[in-house]
Simulated scan of single mutants.
Amino acid sequence: MARLDEAVRRSPVGEGFTERGHFFDSAASMWVAGELVHVEDLVLHDAHMDIRAPTHELTIAHSILRSRRRIAAAEPDWALSDRGFAGLTGSWQTEQPVEVPAVLDRAGKAGRSEELDPLAAEFAHIDAVLERSERLIGSMLKGDADAVPERRGLVVGDLMIRDPDWDEADRLSQWRSIQLKVQGMPPVLSAALLFDAWEVLEPIQRQHWLGGGLISAYLRYRGKVTSHLPTFSVGLKAIARERRRAKDRSIRLLAFLDAMSASSDAGMRELSRLQQARGQMERKLNGRRTSSSLPTVVDLVLSRPVVSAGMVAKAARVTQRGALNLIAEVGVREMTGRGRYRAWGVI
């Protein structure tokens, strides 16, 4: 892992390697969870160029992709802080709501003035309607006309069902206590212990996939990896499920350590391929005009697992026909072989 970190830091394709890693790790996270998401579909969905309606699994994979980008762009300790958890999950409010100062109205009573809030009367009417609706629903459920229903796991508007007995705050507190206990251990061992605790405790009910990103952020926070966000889930794909889900904790910890090693080995091979591909494509840039669109195409190919003609046309600001000509000049290999669309990339 340390060798990969140093190689990415010194490599001219380090940024492209990091961006490609987000896509591969997002698809691998879904694979570990038992769902199959094609990387090319994820790339097209991220570029808003879907060839079909996105599935539920593809939407979750894109959420993982966005969370990894957000973690990578922030400070190393941001994802592990309260503010980071609130930003990544949207489940916890770490800031106090801003209060609107009260002023005196024409009657001399404290309240919002019409100049500060011209829609106060309308909002008050809406609040009254909502209150009457809650009381009506409560009377139907409890047989009490004055009862106001308590908020349960099903929230109308969120369109998601949660287990009311799933105490996320308590589970997260337990996970945080383990994080404090392992602070004095080596970074890799601490990350393995934290990931095992995340798998056992399951602090977040609806976003269990966030554990891999938090472990990668923890390695950055401890200084083990500083040049990129590790692709931990890519290494988990190489580990048998019997080892990842073993009852013996020591077997699980060894499996997680092997996953980190496997992800680093895969990263070294990927970095070597990108460096070789960059060298081959840069030879075709010799003698080109400074206004040529080929450098833009080269950067796009190195930063995405696959590219389509539409993506190249949008990045280079050319037509679809011009994009096909640029792809042919760069010399990348076609990957999909599908009839509905064509895609190219570095193999």
Rank of each mutant, 00 (worst) to 15 (best):
S63L: 06
A61W: 09
A61I: 03
E99L: 00
E57P: 04
G87A: 00
S91Y: 11
G84F: 02
T55Q: 07
R52I: 02
Q93S: 08
T55H: 09
G87R: 03
R83E: 11
A72V: 10
A74F: 05
V98Q: 13
P101H: 06
W78K: 07
E99I: 08
P101G: 09
P101D: 10
S91D: 09
I71E: 04
I71K: 00
G84I: 09
P76A: 02
G84R: 03
G90I: 05
E75C: 09
E99Y: 05
A53W: 13
F85Q: 03
T89N: 05
W92L: 01
R52H: 10
E95Y: 07
I51R: 15
A53Q: 04
I60C: 08
Q93E: 11
V100N: 06
H62R: 11
A73E: 15
A74P: 05
E75N: 11
D50R: 02
P97C: 04
A61M: 12
S67C: 02
W92T: 10
W78R: 08
A72I: 05
A86M: 03
A102T: 15
G84S: 06
E75P: 09
F85C: 04
F85E: 04
E57C: 02
L88Y: 14
P101C: 04
E75F: 08
W92N: 01
A72G: 10
R52S: 13
S67R: 00
Q96V: 12
G90Y: 08
A79D: 02
P97N: 07
H56P: 08
W78V: 10
L65W: 12
A73N: 13
P97S: 03
E99C: 07
P54M: 08
F85M: 01
